[in-house]
Amino acid sequence: MTYKLILNGKTLKGETTTEAVDAATAEKIFKQYANDNGVDGEWTYDDATKTFTVTE
């Protein structure tokens, strides 16, 4: 399945997608991606749209 991440960081904003077997796997990938890019904030997930959002 395709999952989407919306980044609302102070210095980085944008979107990315990943292919993952489930939401938990996608979350791990996205949290590593956000960490690698210096984004740390409040996480939400919308199962209907398979979208994670992180807001600093």
Rank of each mutant, 00 (worst) to 15 (best):
residue 1 M to Y: 15
residue 1 M to R: 09
residue 1 M to T: 15
residue 1 M to K: 13
residue 1 M to P: 14
residue 2 T to P: 06
residue 2 T to L: 15
residue 2 T to I: 14
residue 3 Y to Q: 01
residue 3 Y to P: 01
residue 4 K to S: 07
residue 4 K to G: 04
residue 4 K to Y: 13
residue 4 K to P: 01
residue 5 L to S: 00
residue 5 L to D: 01
residue 6 I to T: 05
residue 6 I to R: 05
residue 6 I to Q: 05
residue 7 L to E: 02
residue 7 L to V: 14
residue 7 L to A: 04
residue 8 N to I: 14
residue 8 N to Y: 11
residue 8 N to K: 09
residue 8 N to P: 04
residue 8 N to A: 08
residue 9 G to I: 09
residue 9 G to Y: 06
residue 9 G to H: 06
residue 9 G to K: 05
residue 9 G to L: 13
residue 10 K to G: 11
residue 10 K to L: 13
residue 10 K to S: 10
residue 10 K to M: 12
residue 10 K to Y: 11
residue 10 K to I: 12
residue 11 T to L: 14
residue 11 T to I: 10
residue 11 T to V: 10
residue 11 T to A: 14
residue 12 L to F: 15
residue 12 L to M: 13
residue 13 K to N: 09
residue 13 K to G: 05
residue 13 K to M: 08
residue 13 K to P: 05
residue 14 G to E: 07
residue 14 G to K: 13
residue 14 G to F: 13
residue 15 E to W: 14
residue 15 E to G: 06
residue 15 E to M: 13
residue 15 E to R: 07
residue 15 E to L: 11
residue 16 T to D: 04
residue 16 T to P: 03
residue 16 T to L: 15
residue 17 T to H: 10
residue 17 T to I: 08
residue 17 T to V: 10
residue 18 T to M: 08
residue 19 E to M: 14
residue 19 E to I: 11
residue 20 A to W: 02
residue 20 A to I: 02
residue 22 D to F: 04
residue 22 D to Q: 03
residue 22 D to A: 03
residue 23 A to K: 15
residue 24 A to V: 10
residue 24 A to I: 09
residue 24 A to Q: 12
residue 24 A to E: 13
residue 24 A to W: 09
residue 24 A to L: 12
residue 25 T to Y: 08
residue 25 T to G: 08
residue 25 T to P: 02
residue 26 A to K: 00
residue 26 A to D: 00
residue 26 A to L: 00
residue 27 E to V: 05
residue 27 E to N: 06
residue 27 E to R: 09
residue 28 K to A: 14
residue 28 K to S: 10
residue 28 K to N: 09
residue 28 K to G: 08
residue 28 K to P: 03
residue 29 I to E: 06
residue 29 I to R: 07
residue 30 F to K: 00
residue 30 F to H: 01
residue 30 F to M: 03
residue 30 F to G: 00
residue 31 K to A: 06
residue 31 K to Q: 08
residue 32 Q to S: 09
residue 32 Q to V: 09
residue 32 Q to H: 08
residue 32 Q to A: 11
residue 33 Y to V: 06
residue 33 Y to F: 13
residue 33 Y to L: 06
residue 33 Y to N: 02
residue 34 A to Q: 02
residue 34 A to H: 01
residue 34 A to I: 06
residue 35 N to Q: 15
residue 36 D to K: 10
residue 36 D to R: 10
residue 36 D to P: 02
residue 36 D to H: 08
residue 36 D to L: 12
residue 36 D to V: 08
residue 37 N to T: 08
residue 37 N to V: 15
residue 38 G to Q: 08
residue 38 G to I: 05
residue 38 G to F: 07
residue 39 V to Q: 04
residue 39 V to Y: 08
residue 39 V to K: 03
residue 39 V to E: 03
residue 40 D to L: 12
residue 40 D to K: 11
residue 40 D to F: 15
residue 41 G to I: 02
residue 41 G to L: 03
residue 42 E to H: 15
residue 42 E to Q: 10
residue 42 E to G: 05
residue 42 E to I: 15
residue 42 E to M: 11
residue 42 E to N: 11
residue 43 W to N: 00
residue 43 W to Y: 02
residue 44 T to I: 09
residue 45 Y to S: 01
residue 45 Y to R: 02
residue 46 D to K: 04
residue 47 D to N: 10
residue 47 D to E: 15
residue 48 A to M: 13
residue 49 T to N: 09
residue 49 T to M: 06
residue 50 K to D: 03
residue 51 T to V: 07
residue 52 F to T: 00
residue 52 F to H: 02
residue 52 F to L: 01
residue 52 F to E: 00
residue 52 F to K: 00
residue 52 F to G: 00
residue 52 F to D: 00
residue 53 T to N: 05
residue 53 T to P: 00
residue 53 T to D: 02
residue 53 T to W: 12
residue 54 V to D: 01
residue 54 V to E: 00
residue 55 T to E: 07
residue 55 T to L: 06
residue 55 T to V: 08
residue 56 E to L: 06
